[in-house]
């Protein structure tokens, strides 16, 4: 499944990083601690977080995650958007909280 395939079913808003929308999804990782993501997220996973500052793009890009989903309708900083476009890491937004969006994504990926 690609990032494009989950936008509609999960009702996600694509904020930036459009060039990465064809990234293949290998799974998901949920954390708001950057070192936790650095240490344990795997390549191709979607990273779900409430962090919105630009350092999430550095982490996402170093770890080759497929996209970032920002929860609870939070709006990322301008620097985050700029960097996500440079690194081609899609930043997606949901109004749902972490528990609910993770559940929905889990169900969707399970169907594959």
């Amino acid at each position: 499944m690609k990032i494009t395939d989950i936008i509609k079913p999960l009702d996600l808003k694509v904020i930036s990083g459009h060039n990465g929308l064809s990234n293949e999804i290998s799974g998901g990782y949920v954390s708001d601690l950057l070192s936790d993501v650095m240490g344990y997220a795997k390549e191709g996973e979607i990273w779900i977080t409430l962090q919105t500052h630009q350092n999430i793009i550095a982490v996402a890009s170093l770890k080759d995650v497929s996209a970032i989903i920002i929860v609870k309708g939070a709006v990322p900083e301008t620097d985050t958007i700029v960097k996500s476009n440079i690194e081609n890491i899609p930043v997606l937004s949901t109004d749902l909280d972490t528990f609910n969006i993770t559940g929905c994504l889990f169900e969707l990926l399970k169907m594959e």
Partner: peptide
């Protein structure tokens, strides 16, 4: 609050 300071940095370095 920014998600740094989890206290996992040095152990990540050791592991990797």
């Amino acid at each position: 609050e920014m998600g740094f300071g989890a206290g996992m940095g040095l152990s990540n370095m050791k592991k990797n």
